[in-house]
């Protein structure tokens, strides 16, 4: 078992995945896995210009920490990185980064979707779709199939 290294951040600027690579590096792992959720331009008939995110920051960090720690335990991960960007995220840029490492690939492959599912359920972050006509609409989970995110 690893003593997992956990990195959790809320950022207001572009997410640069490379700077987090060292956070999941470990001599005893054979797998590094990453997921980036990015703003998509077209969803059905809707054309998105950007997504705007806000959060209950203190609670979001606390919930993200809980998720990362539980994922590390559940999937025997050596390290977890969980970063969410707030503010305006233009098309093509990342709003969320998840990274993890493990001794073998199945653990990391399984951890990524689990972390994203729980993040989308419990982390107090909200997004608005800013469309090309200048309208801003809150996106609710029931509409998530229509949301311009990953």
């Amino acid at each position: 078992m690893f003593e997992p290294k956990i990195t959790v951040e809320l950022v207001d600027l572009e997410i640069n995945r490379e700077i987090y690579e060292r956070e999941i590096a470990h001599d005893d792992v054979g797998a590094h896995a990453w997921f980036l959720g990015v703003t998509r331009r077209v969803t059905g008939d809707q054309v998105t210009k950007a997504l705007h995110y806000e959060a209950h920051r203190e609670m979001a960090i606390q919930q993200m920490l809980k998720i990362a720690e539980e994922a590390a335990r559940k999937f025997s991960l050596a390290a977890v990185v969980l970063v969410h960007r707030l503010g305006t995220v233009p098309v093509g840029e990342a709003s969320v980064l998840v990274g993890c490492s493990s001794a073998h690939r199945p653990e990391s492959f399984s951890a990524l979707p689990w972390i994203m599912e729980v993040l989308k359920r419990d982390v107090p972050v909200w997004k608005q779709d800013l469309d090309v006509n200048g309208a801003a609409n809150w996106i609710h989970p029931a509409e998530s199939n229509h949301a311009a995110e990953s």
């Binding site: 107090p124 972050v125 949301a147 995110e149």
Partner: peptide, 27 residues
């Protein structure tokens, strides 16, 4: 205090922060 509580939970009125959390949509 940054943790979800169930409807039946008894929560303290003193030294506590209450927040109304609408459906979240992070990611």
């Amino acid at each position: 205090n940054c943790e979800y509580v169930s409807e039946a939970s008894l929560v303290p009125l003193v030294d506590s922060e209450f927040a109304l959390i609408p459906p979240v949509s992070g990611g």
